[in-house]
């Protein structure tokens, strides 16, 4: 296995790990958003039902379906590997830059979002703190906590919707949530296209398209997430 561990420890190997885990998280976010949108009462909601039914049934499906359970372990692993590798890269890169800073430094770049590109470590760390709080509040409660129950046609379902809507009653929490989404937007404005370049995918025909899709994704997906608590705070 030495050739493989050498590859993983090389500078390019480490970046490939960041890229693959990052792309996996990008796909996950899309699916996660599709599920979350059901929190809002005008999506997938029959007015005859009590609020949150569609969301609670979806949450039950996501926590019991064996295939999704298997993929979720891959997800936990990806987040951990991506975050730990991210911190390793961050610290190695700071060391390479050296302790003596420039007195004057102009931050010109040939292309892209230079703020996001040079602050990936900070942005990632903000996302990580958000994830810890987020997972504790919803994921851990769903797994271990004592949730109130909802009953749909005799079926007993954990009422995750109740916990979520309770959290979104706090203005402070809604603001924290929205700011975290801004961090994700910046992280992905650079990260999306960067992941392809890391894998060596840079082509004069397709790269402009990748950059365009990346820009659209990094605006629309975090915006979609952020709209939910804001909508619930004001209208539900």
């Amino acid at each position: 296995m030495s050739w493989f561990s050498d590859f993983l420890a090389s500078s390019i190997g480490r970046k490939v790990v960041m890229s693959l885990t990052g792309l996996f998280l990008i796909i996950f976010l899309l699916i996660h958003l599709a599920g979350n949108l059901q929190l809002m009462d005008f999506i997938a909601h029959d007015p005859a039902d009590e609020p949150g039914k569609a969301f609670n049934l979806y949450a039950k499906f996501m926590t019991t379906n064996p295939l999704i359970k298997a993929v979720s372990y891959l997800l936990y692993l990806s987040i951990l590997v991506h975050a730990i590798q991210g911190w390793v890269l961050w610290s190695k890169n700071r060391k390479a830059r050296g302790s003596q800073k420039y007195a004057v430094k102009v931050n010109k770049v040939a292309d892209g979002n230079s703020f996001a590109a040079s602050n990936m470590g900070w942005l990632g760390t903000i996302i990580f703190i958000f994830l810890l709080i987020h997972l504790y509040q919803f994921w851990l409660q769903m797994k271990l906590g004592k949730l109130p129950m909802a009953y749909y046609d005799g079926e007993e379902v954990k009422n995750l919707f109740f916990i979520v809507s309770e959290a979104y009653e706090s203005l402070g929490y809604v603001i924290f949530y929205v700011l975290s989404m801004v961090a994700i937007a910046y992280h992905l404005d650079h990260g999306f296209q960067s992941a392809f370049q890391t894998l060596g995918i840079n082509h004069r025909k397709y790269t402009p398209m990748i950059k365009w899709v990346g820009r659209a994704y990094s605006i629309l997906i975090p915006l979609g997430f952020a709209v939910i608590p804001v909508y619930m705070y004001f209208f539900m």
């Binding site: 500078s11 890169n93 770049v109 370049q197």
Partner: peptide, 12 residues
């Protein structure tokens, strides 16, 4: 040397 974060300051 550090690793490439695809910042493109180099090309600039």
């Amino acid at each position: 040397f550090g690793m490439c974060s695809n910042i493109t300051a180099c090309e600039a």
